[in-house]
Simulated assay, not measured.
Amino acid sequence: MPRPQNRSQRRDTPLTPELIIEAALRLSDSEADLDRLTVRRLASDLGVGAMTLYSYFRSKEEILDGMADHVLGRMTLPDKPDADPAEALRTVGRAFLTMMREHPSVVRLFASRVTDSRAALRGAMEAVLQRLVDAGIPGPTAVRCYGFLITYAIGFASYQAPRPWGRLDGQDDAEARRQRSHFYAALPIDEFPQVVGNAEEVAELASDSQFEAGLSAYIEATVRALPDRA
């Protein structure tokens, strides 16, 4: 009687570094927890032995670097040209936040790792800077804008991720926000007079409207300081 094949023996798709990185992103994004991503678990998901992965990547650290480079290198911006510097800044800020949301696990990677990958630098830095410069923002100012927008998006995505009442994508999210507002409103008013009195607004701190408010304030200040292009 033939022995049953294990997952690695049944594997039909050839293994590649790209396939490994995509699987690592899928696993980590499903739980938004990099600590639970291990070489052994990744190998099991791919249907191979752990030692097979070590023939492609020397360590988990290399896999994490590959994940960050993969996401950064594939960052996309809308094809529609921007009408002015304000629109370009808003386009970039929203694109950064979208990237963080699509891959919530790598927010930690961006906050803790530095990449030297040319693909990553082209996708998430050079293209962004060129977008801002093309809109009329001087190079040095564009660099500072880049720094603010990516760190703002990282920080906001990190804050919003564990707060399901932040995004209003459906009825469940609206209910979660209502419940959170009630939680703040029910705190002892003698201890938390401001929180209780502004319970609905406090529940909005993780909302998309809060992100847009901060983005708009930065854009207004930045555009006001730009040299006159007339």
Score class of each variant (00 low, 15 high):
68 A>M: 14
68 A>N: 05
93 G>D: 03
72 L>T: 00
72 L>K: 11
73 G>T: 10
91 T>W: 00
79 D>F: 10
74 R>V: 06
69 D>K: 08
79 D>S: 14
79 D>Q: 14
89 L>G: 01
95 A>F: 02
80 K>G: 07
90 R>S: 12
88 A>C: 05
80 K>F: 01
77 L>T: 06
70 H>K: 12
93 G>F: 04
70 H>L: 04
93 G>E: 04
94 R>W: 02
77 L>P: 07
87 E>I: 08
82 D>G: 02
99 M>Y: 04
80 K>V: 13
92 V>T: 01
76 T>S: 15
77 L>R: 03
70 H>P: 02
79 D>G: 12
88 A>T: 09
85 P>N: 01
85 P>Y: 01
98 T>V: 14
94 R>N: 13
83 A>N: 14
75 M>I: 02
85 P>D: 02
71 V>C: 09
77 L>Y: 03
93 G>C: 05
70 H>D: 11
83 A>Q: 14
80 K>Q: 12
79 D>T: 12
84 D>F: 06
96 F>T: 02
69 D>S: 13
91 T>M: 11
97 L>F: 09
79 D>Y: 10
93 G>T: 03
97 L>Y: 04
79 D>A: 12
68 A>L: 14
93 G>W: 00
72 L>M: 15
85 P>L: 05
77 L>A: 06
88 A>W: 06
97 L>E: 05
78 P>L: 13
81 P>Y: 12
78 P>M: 14
90 R>H: 13
73 G>D: 12
88 A>I: 06
95 A>K: 05
67 M>P: 09
98 T>Y: 08
73 G>I: 03
80 K>H: 10
99 M>H: 11
96 F>M: 05
84 D>W: 08
91 T>C: 14
86 A>K: 05
